[in-house]
Design a binder for these strands. Structure first.
Lengths: 206, 206
DNA sequence: AAGGATTTTATTCGGTTGACAAGCGAAAAT
DNA sequence: ATTTTCGCTTGTCAACCGAATAAAATCCTT
């Protein structure tokens, strides 16, 4: 039976279609939540951006809250996979610098991350608690072990180091339209990203 | 005529009352806009926090948009007066460090500022344009002239320096509840503010 | 071709939004 | 003392919100 079982382009076309739709909705949710915050984003607008309708969101995700969690899971999933790929290098100082550059490049590729942090970190509600315990604390622990390995950063200064690094590395990308208007520099350009990565790396490790 | 013209406690009691009410509303608006963004903040909640009613906001300010502008004017008015009080010091390097510490202290006292920037800087709408041209550009020009005076920062790096400084100095205060939960450090404490000011100052000018 | 999962369309519900208009009452002007 | 002014309160409005539902349409699977 040479040409048997034709017709169906793929055995799991259904599951793939389902997954593709979910991903489209999540992608639209990430953009919209990052732009307007949880309250400001409506499921109707998310559906419109995803090219579907509001009813489908209720079908795939139980609620707006669950959709938000799926969006955050996706973003921090990207961060986790990027961060775990550490190029255990030669000079420990240069390795640390490269880690910082890597973080800045990630912040440039995903400016939504800082927006989510600023949007949710200011209110002490259930969403913030979930975000911290599920995603931020593991990253914070990673950073703590790394700084111990390399430079001797006093334990008490770790919070200051963490937020200074995150803020310095990602703000310019999170307010890209403003930066363009204010300075004329387009921070989404590859050249600007590398310049900022080098600038922040040299700032922290001269 | 010793006790003449009594009765009226003050000649302009009416105007004073009006101004006091406006200020109460603006203060409530700053808190609410900073917490929930422009869309997430409702005029009813702002009125409730100000101890009045929603109709009064429409009376004093024509629209929610005008109220937002009044709130931003107030915040950046604080920044301007703080920034202009530069203590032309002795060692130019130490003077610059003190300027950075001063900026961090301001960011701690007014964490709303970064939230306004992140909230509005991400969308290229009319509010962002107004914010940049009216308030941010003058501060950016100030910074440019100061860095020229002191250290020889290449012109092309000024945008990177600006956003790195703003981000490093203020993020920790803008996500204070998150910081408390994540690290146990309360960034609103006087001691933590001074530590962060010194940390950022030494980061930029070792 | 039948069957079932995905998707669309439509509707309902309780609630919130910003803007507006009419009227109240005390201060101010005459 | 009467009238006018004006800061303020109250109630109303259409538009939109999120969530839930139901039924029909579409498409993959078998």
């Amino acid at each position: 039976m040479p040409a048997a079982k034709a017709a169906t382009a793929a055995p799991h076309a259904r599951a793939r279609q389902r997954e593709a739709t979910r991903e489209r909705i999540v992608a639209a949710a990430i953009d919209t939540f990052a732009e307007k915050g949880f309250r400001g984003a409506s499921t109707r607008e998310i559906a419109r951006r995803a090219g579907t309708n509001q009813g489908l969101i209720t079908y795939h995700f139980r609620s707006k809250d669950a959709l938000w969690r799926a969006a955050v899971d996706t973003i921090f999933g990207w961060l986790e996979s990027e961060w775990s790929a550490s190029p255990s290098g030669l000079d420990p100082r240069e390795t640390a610098r490269e880690a910082i550059r890597s973080w800045v490049r990630f912040a440039a590729a995903h400016p939504e991350l800082l927006r989510f942090m600023v949007n949710e970190g200011r209110e002490s509600d259930e969403r913030m608690r979930w975000l911290v315990e599920t995603h931020i604390r593991p990253r914070y622990a990673d950073l703590a072990s790394r700084t111990n390995e390399i430079a001797g950063l006093p334990e008490a200064l770790l919070p200051h180091f963490f937020y200074a690094l995150v803020g310095a590395g990602s703000l310019i990308f999170s307010v890209a339209p403003e930066c363009r208007r204010l300075t004329g520099l387009d921070p989404t350009r590859e050249e600007a990203i590398e310049t900022h990565a080098e600038f922040v790396a040299r700032l922290i490790l001269p």
